[in-house]
Design a protein around this nucleic acid. Sequence first.
DNA 1: TTGTAGGCGTTATCAG
DNA 2: CTGATAACGCCTACAA
Lengths: 370, 370
Amino acid sequence: MGRLLNYLATGLFCCHAVYDGAVTDVTSTGTATTPTKRGRGEKSSATIYDIAKLAGVNPSTVSRALSKPGRVSAKTQKIIEDAAAELNYQVNPFARALPTGRTQTIGLIVADITNPTFFDIIRGAETTGSARDYTLVLAESAESPETEVTAARRLLSTVDGLILASPRMDDDHIRALAADKPVAVINREIQGVPCVVPDVNKGISEAVRSLAANGHEKLAYVAGPKQSWMTARRWDGVKAAAEWSKLSAVRLESSKPTVDGGRQVARDVLDSGATAVITYNDLLAIGLMQELQAGGMRVPDQISIVGFDDIFGADFTTPALTTVRSPLGECGTRAVTILLDMLQGQDAPGEAVRVETELVVRGSSGRLLV
Amino acid sequence: MGRLLNYLATGLFCCHAVYDGAVTDVTSTGTATTPTKRGRGEKSSATIYDIAKLAGVNPSTVSRALSKPGRVSAKTQKIIEDAAAELNYQVNPFARALPTGRTQTIGLIVADITNPTFFDIIRGAETTGSARDYTLVLAESAESPETEVTAARRLLSTVDGLILASPRMDDDHIRALAADKPVAVINREIQGVPCVVPDVNKGISEAVRSLAANGHEKLAYVAGPKQSWMTARRWDGVKAAAEWSKLSAVRLESSKPTVDGGRQVARDVLDSGATAVITYNDLLAIGLMQELQAGGMRVPDQISIVGFDDIFGADFTTPALTTVRSPLGECGTRAVTILLDMLQGQDAPGEAVRVETELVVRGSSGRLLV
DNA sequence: TTGTAGGCGTTATCAG
DNA sequence: CTGATAACGCCTACAA
């Protein structure tokens, strides 16, 4: 029954009119040597056949003129363009995609649309994509590896290339996708697949050094989701930098990488005795800070907090959040660029593209006032 | 030259292999009565022809079995499904879209991806869309009416329905789009087009009443972009509520509806002598609050600030922002629902769908301490 | 340079 | 219930 309604609904589409007409035509002409659809008063978009008729040339010539200018005499070119303009012709992307395989779209899959981390990536991708005339198709995996593969497979068949932001599925799945069509990965490094990865080391060592310089000796790292490739990288970075700066570092787990998760981990942070905390992301940092402040702690006098990413809103807090900024927007941009370059035949970059992270010092970190 | 590269790039696509083979086939068979593409070892997705061959039935039967189950005998149905599974068949959405007109996608155009207001809308739309098996296609208009029409036209030809969030183009353009395909508008009301609009009155009157109850007598409204339909509605609401509560209300202009714009308008706010401010959106409120606090004002003791929307991060500030919440996510959801219902043949709702706004009292508003 | 004639994968019509 | 077969709109060898 849903089906029926579904079917009737096509009445809303312009092309339905075509059908009605086409049927009549066929019964009368038999062999449709003249695929001419005559004017159904409506707006139902014009085809290259309409243009051809109006310009007095063959449809194929129209196709050539419109898709690869230069393969047609300047004169007919103009005639055709004028006709196209007059009918305000628009290519039918689907019809073009069929023989061509190209859709002028790129897909982006994010783990969680709710997470502001991805906002910048989305924006970066949309902006640089549409600058090169590509449309962005968005999907979310809801942090589930399974949903992610499904969504990826579905998308992959409709787009020219796919971007996976912080993917949760395993490496092999990703490689399988990449074997089909150009794929770029953000926030994770996978051999043989083009990746854009913030290089956490610079930012982290800046952060740890700054903390050490401010008299901190005991550091805690609040980790993110276990499946996250990044949470491990960041912890590695923190460990290494701490060692180098002769700080002790302890790793704490969070239930989820959100403001709420941050609140919940406050107890553990306190118990750990650390005077400085670096969190897996800004959300955790913000939640943690709120909870600690609510408990009477003074930030940064008694405890310093450093977040990660510099998401939208990180500077809304009081004190504003010190954080290791990942150029998320740039990641989106770079990923799209890589994809489009591959689409033009260029090789994928041999190894992961690294974008710099940097410490953004704001109010939530500073000297320890015993 | 870019063209050439472009062309070569198709080698990356699975379907290129089909071409190579097809060409060979044609030269040998002449009339392609057997459109059979034989196995090109690759993964290049299977077609209903492959299934048909494997199942020993006609392609058209496969099509029926797969698209509208029930029009085929239970037995063959199963055979076909098994075959499809074995070849892990996936429909080609483009091929399907061509005769059908349906693409299983809906488009969403936002004025500014940068603006967190839209994040919730995007999320709501993506979520409820994909729950009903629709994919979201995203585009931005960069606040420009022209870009918006262009993007809209381009999108419209590729999607089943279109959502316009806070559109900047004029009513007639929108009606024209709506005449072609189902269109839903968020944050603006247009006769004859399905709209989802937060009903500001409830939230605003709550806000103004609360302000009045706290001893405020002079109110300022910081307006948003001139082209924004909403900025006018909100000002209307504020004026009316103020009158009702016997407050004086003055309208101030902002340069842009951002944190920065909020900072810049601080001077005017001070000069106005108002002790309470309602801003067009949260961003303005946050910027304004930061600037006032930087200048030594105490919020809310000396001045109360009320934002609009309750965007992500509105509660990161100190004091947390009091704001009139618009259920943006719900707007996205509702818009998609309307669209999909229309796609199923239901009528568009006769008049604008109103979603409730409500005052969220947090720390930035309160009693005036002279 | 332009016209001719398939074919891309699906759906839909019309016989059987 | 199932098989042919013609569209859908566009692209591209190949021939003229």
